[in-house]
Amino acid sequence: MALENDSLLQAANYVDGEMSAEERAEFELQMQADAELREYVAQYREANTALRRFLVPDSNAEALKQTLGSLNQQYFKPEAKVVSFGNYSRWLSAVAAVLILGIIVFNPFRRGLYEEYNTATTMSVAERGDGAETNLEKAAAFYNNKEFTKAEGLLAKEYTADTKNSLIAYYYALTLIEDKQEAKAREILQQLYNGESAFKYDAAYYVGLSYVKQKDNANAKVWLQKVAAGTSNYQKARELLGKL
């Protein structure tokens, strides 16, 4: 990059809206005469927009996902099929035999490593006991019911309101993994890992698992090895490392 540090700073201030009207006008004049600078400003803008998608919670996108989630169930659920057995009964034993053989040979019910090692199946929050259910309690209910998209929506809001609450951050990240937003989840989990909360090593374990889910074994190993001995997921992490 041949641009001077001063130009880099000005470009950042220009795109981020940190310039006065005069400064803007002057900078735009400079850009007219400098193709390289124009190009850099365009790239800075692209980078900024791209990162915002991951770093700035977008309540509109969350709301849209809720809508799509329920429409998906309506339009994509397998249609119930009614089968009449009557004449087919004698075929049934043969079919059953083939099915059983198929299950033994191919075992379609064998779960993936991610599902097998996903230990955080329940989310519990302290109940206040005064009747009114808090959003966090609702989120926990959805989470425990495996309705992760719904839990994600609520947790996204709670997380935006309080990014320092490690419990919210942790479970929000886990719903993101379920929702195939592994990169965004890792961003949150890595912050937890860098901090000193009770979720420090659980966060490392789940960064590892998120890589397992994406079949990136190299990165998975790096993170699973960070889970410290004596913490709750240590045994599982060791076991999983042996399988990768």
Binding site: M1, L8, L9, N13, D16, E18, Q43, A47, N48
Partner: peptide
């Protein structure tokens, strides 16, 4: 903050290129 951010973003843009 501004100076550091502009440097970080410059490294980011460079990484992508």
């Amino acid at each position: 903050l501004r100076k550091k951010k502009s440097e970080c973003m410059a490294s980011l843009v460079k990484l992508v290129q």
